[in-house]
C-alpha cells in the first residue's frame, strides 16, 4: 500500500511540475495576451490540480486531505472567473486577438493607453460595441465616454 501511494504520489507530483513548467514557458513565449491566457490556464487547472491531488495521495485520509480538497475546489471555481474577467476587460479595452501571420505583438494598440479602457477613441473591436457588455456598466463610466 505504501509503495502504491508512493508511486502515485510521484506520478501526480511530477505531472503537476511538468504542466507548471510548460505553462510558465508558454506565458513567456506566446505571441499575445489571449494566447498567454491559454498558457496561464494550463498552470491553473492541470498544474495546480495535479500537484494538489499528488499531495492528497501523499497525506492519505487525514484532515489535510480535506483541506487540500477545499483548496482544489476553490481554485477550480475561482480560476475560470478570474480568467473570464481578465479576458472580458481586455476585449473591452480593444485588444485584438492575434492571428496567424501577424507579428508577435510587441505593443498593443497604444502602449500608453493599453490599460485604459475609457478613452474617447473608438474601441478597436467593432463587434464589442454592439454587444451588451459595453452598456452594462453604464453608471460607472463617470462621463468619460
Amino acid at each position: 500500500m505504501e509503495v502504491i501511494q508512493d508511486i502515485f504520489g510521484w506520478a501526480f507530483l511530477m505531472g503537476g511540475a511538468f504542466f507548471l513548467l510548460v505553462g510558465g514557458i508558454g506565458v513567456l513565449r506566446m505571441p499575445d495576451f489571449f494566447t498567454r491566457m491559454h498558457a496561464a490556464g494550463i498552470t491553473d487547472t492541470m498544474g495546480a490540480g495535479l500537484v494538489l491531488i499528488g499531495l492528497m495521495i501523499e497525506s492519505g485520509f487525514t484532515l489535510n486531505t480535506a483541506k487540500l480538497l477545499l483548496m482544489l475546489f476553490f481554485l477550480l471555481f475561482t480560476s475560470p472567473v478570474s480568467s473570464h474577467a481578465t479576458a472580458h476587460a481586455a476585449l473591452l479595452a480593444g485588444l485584438k486577438p492575434w492571428r496567424r501571420g501577424d507579428k508577435p505583438a510587441k505593443s498593443l494598440p497604444d502602449p500608453r493607453t493599453a490599460g485604459a479602457i475609457m478613452t474617447t477613441t473608438e474601441p478597436a473591436q467593432p463587434k464589442s460595441r454592439t454587444a451588451s457588455p459595453q452598456r452594462r456598466n453604464g453608471p460607472h463610466k463617470g462621463g468619460r465616454r
Binding site: 506565458v27 495576451f33 498567454r36 491566457m37 496561464a40 478570474s82 481578465t86 476587460a89 481586455a90 479595452a93 485588444l95 505583438a105 510587441k106 505593443s107 498593443l108 502602449p111 493599453a114 490599460g115
Partner: peptide, 11 residues
C-alpha cells in the same frame, strides 16, 4: 506590453 499581461501574470 499591456496592463492585462501584468494582471494575468500577477494572478
Amino acid at each position: 506590453p499591456t496592463a492585462f499581461d501584468r494582471v494575468l501574470a500577477a494572478n
